[in-house]
Design a protein around this nucleic acid. Structure first.
Length: 420
DNA sequence: TCTGGGGTCCTAGGACCC
DNA sequence: TCTGGGGTCCTAGGACCC
């Protein structure tokens, strides 16, 4: 029986992913300046109210520019900051190219996000040698073949491998085995521990916990009493305790599908809101069918111009997957929830997914439903063949609203969430 | 021309049933 | 007249991740 402590897990993390990928692409296009070597960020357009920093170069980091802050504020910190728009299609391609390289080193890979994954190296030693040696080979191969650098963290579980890859950047292989925890992980500020975020940090500070080591050595019952199961989890993380498997997941274990959008102006009327919701539904429903799923729960979220968010959801009697069934539900949910204030952001999310192949037909299903499904299938096929803009609803023609909104590209991948 | 968009999981409270 | 308690489902909101 293999003990957990004998596992070898790699965490591969692309350094400044979006920015690196933009830099590589631009160099390939004949650009002479490497974005990674100047103060630069990838960020949206403030005009359309998308103005936040998505990724920064290391020189930009020297100006204390942080991911998530506004472009406006970043410019205050660095007057001649270079700002480039995100191109998500490129990122999906770069991510997939990296996955192809990693697949040749282990069959057991868990994609954690577009720029991070876990690789189980446990049984690969006889093929590729000692873990550190292999990690260096992987890192160099990605650099040489794809042009960007990665960090690789090595340990006996996913949590420690992930913490390891964060220790020193960029272009590094770093180990963090259990015996190295006191020296390498405990001195770090507690907010650098995975799952300790903005809300938990001040609560821990109030308890006199400032470092990961403070948390690790705190009375576990007391922390559990104060922070419930969450407290127990982060206490275990601080002690390097975590034993989840590397799940070579597919989109089959996706829990939900959602799209949301920040509108470039404040929406003041129901009709416009309905149009935007319909364009979100088109994308959500298409992704749902693409995953061969139906959903049983539909939710609408609203963020108003004062940044207050609220949501409204409905559990369905029978699972659905067609645009024509989904949008009336979404419109109703919106009408019930909207408090009449100016709207900044709208979202649609479906969950409680099940297979669409053998879904239980309810007694109240009617033949119309079958026609809807046939229509959607035909539209999906046209969009696949001639592009997403080849067929749009007439209502969008003169609306000034995009007929399809959102999506993460053809290559949906499962995200991991709070539990490793 | 300040504040994105994609996820997962947990909790609390109320309804409802026995 | 007094006011059980357990279980499950549903909903809204908030925490965290990238």
């Amino acid at each position: 029986m293999l003990k957990n402590k004998d596992r070898i897990i790699f965490h591969i993390d692309v350094n400044s992913a979006y920015l690196s990928w933009e830099a590589v692409y631009r160099l390939q296009q004949g650009e002479t300046i490497d974005l990674r070597e100047i103060p630069a960020v990838v960020g949206g357009d403030p005009k359309s109210r998308h103005g936040i920093v998505l990724a920064k170069s290391i020189p930009a980091k020297q100006y204390k520019i942080q991911t998530g802050e506004t472009i406006y504020s970043a410019l205050q910190k660095c007057k001649d900051l270079t700002i480039v728009k995100p191109t998500y299609d490129l990122y999906i391609k770069c991510s997939s190219a990296m996955m192809e390289v990693l697949k040749s080193y282990s069959p057991s890979i868990q994609r954690f996000s577009v720029d991070e994954c876990f690789l189980d190296y446990t049984h690969m030693k006889e093929h590729f040698g000692e873990p550190e040696e292999a990690a260096h080979r992987i890192k160099e191969q990605i650099k040489n073949e794809l042009g960007f650098t990665v960090n690789i963290g090595i340990s006996s579980n996913k949590l420690l491998a992930k913490m390891a890859s964060d220790l020193i950047k960029p272009d590094r292989v770093i180990t963090l085995f259990p015996e190295e925890i006191p020296e390498k992980m405990w001195p770090l500020p507690v907010e650098e521990l995975f799952m300790v975020g903005r809300a938990t940090t001040p609560k821990l500070h109030k308890l006199g916990i400032y470092t990961i080591g403070n948390l690790a050595n705190y009375d576990v019952e007391h922390i559990r009493y104060r922070l419930k199961s969450y407290g127990l989890m982060i206490w275990q993380y601080a002690n390097g305790i975590e034993d989840s498997m590397v799940r070579a997941g597919s989109h089959m274990d996706m829990k939900g599908i959602g799209n949301s959008t920040t509108i470039s102006f404040d929406v003041m009327d129901k009709e416009t809101a309905h149009m935007i919701l319909l364009s979100l539904v088109e994308t959500v429903a298409m992704r749902l069918r693409d995953a061969l799923c139906c959903c049983r729960l539909v939710a609408v979220s609203i963020k108003n111009s004062s940044f207050k968010s609220y949501s409204h959801q409905k559990k369905l009697f029978s699972p659905i997957d067609t645009t024509n069934e989904l949008y009336p539900i979404v419109w109703d949910l919106f009408d019930e929830a909207w408090q009449g204030e100016p709207i900044r952001n709208l979202g649609v999310r479906v969950s409680e997914l099940c297979s669409n192949e053998f879904y239980q037909k309810s007694l109240f299903d009617h033949e119309k439903k079958e026609r809807y499904r046939a229509l959607d299938t035909a539209i999906d096929a046209l969009r696949l063949r001639y592009g997403s803009k080849s067929i749009i609803r007439a209502g969008f023609l003169h609306s000034g609203i995009k007929p399809l909104t959102g999506g993460v590209g053809a290559d949906d991948y499962p995200m991991m969430g709070s539990i490793l």
